[in-house]
């Protein structure tokens, strides 16, 4: 098991945001965290990688307690793609190379540069490699952020809306790459998404959050209209296309 969370609670200024969160993610699993705006999806990811400190509960990554690890040791195990990206006068290559920070002491080795080059090729970003990121579109910037998390070579990938600024082609490209990486390298990924159809297409398991807790944890094939209605308060029809559920609002 790569990630194990047991009875996690998180409060902000005394106001409970997450409570009794318990779930596991195994090797090769891609989990989508779903739910309405403000339910605590991003907070859950930030608690897992220690950016936020839960008030109680256990978070284990490969049987090690995240909160007891040094920040660099966490970063060697967990890669994180934040929801908002900052630009700057730095090339895409250098921005991605920053993902090697947890592995670099003083200067980047040839291996670090090769890993970055490999990520750039995998994401078909060769033409963007030496472009400054302050001249990139939101989608290109998001690809850079995903590439940066991938070159961290983590055991667990956490991604907060990794495809929100991407067009359809780039969404598919990124999600296919993430799924391939997760399977081939026996790592795990947890990502928040708003697009249910995309989530059902690529995730192995879907966690629905409601009122700060897990309302349902099901495989995409087990999604029902009742779950969607309970979580989003919206009546829907569920159709299946090529074996994947598609949500149509009534």
């Amino acid at each position: 098991m790569i990630l194990r969370i047991d009875g996690m609670r998180f409060s902000y200024n005394g106001h409970p945001v997450l409570h009794d969160v318990t779930f596991e993610v195994g090797q090769g699993d891609l989990v989508a965290v779903l739910g309405p705006n403000g339910v605590g999806k991003s907070t859950l990811l930030r608690c897992i990688n220690g950016i936020l400190k839960p008030s109680s509960g256990v978070i284990l990554v490969e049987d090690e307690t995240v909160l007891k690890l040094e920040a660099m040791a966490v970063a060697r195990r967990i890669g994180y793609v934040a929801q908002h990206q900052t630009t700057g006068k730095i090339t895409a290559f250098d921005a991605i190379l920053m993902g090697r920070r947890p592995h670099i002491r003083l200067r980047a080795a040839a291996e670090d540069l090769q890993i970055v080059d490999g990520a750039i090729k995998s994401l078909h970003m060769e033409k963007l490699a030496l472009r400054h990121i302050d001249r990139m579109s939101g989608g290109e910037l998001q690809k850079v952020a995903v590439a940066r998390a991938l070159v961290q070579e983590p055991r667990l990938l956490l991604m907060d809306e990794p495809t929100s600024s991407l067009d359809l082609k780039n969404q598919v490209e990124i999600l296919q790459l993430i799924r391939r990486v997760v399977r081939e390298h026996a790592v795990a990924a947890v990502m928040t998404l708003h697009d249910l159809t995309t989530a059902f297409r690529y995730a192995d398991q879907c966690l629905f959050l409601k009122n700060g807790g897990i309302h349902a944890a099901v495989a995409p094939q087990e999604i029902t209209a009742d779950i969607i209605k309970d979580v989003y308060g919206l009546p829907v029809d569920i159709h299946h296309h090529n074996g994947f559920p598609v949500v149509i609002p009534k």
């Binding site: 966490v74 994180y80 900052t86 947890p102």
Partner: peptide, 23 residues
């Protein structure tokens, strides 16, 4: 100079920097 990697990470945003192990 010993902290240039950390400053680069902070340039990328506080959350990204924390995700890269930077305090």
């Amino acid at each position: 100079l010993l902290n240039v990697w950390n400053y680069n990470a902070v340039d990328a945003g506080d959350e990204t920097a924390r995700g890269l192990g930077v305090r």
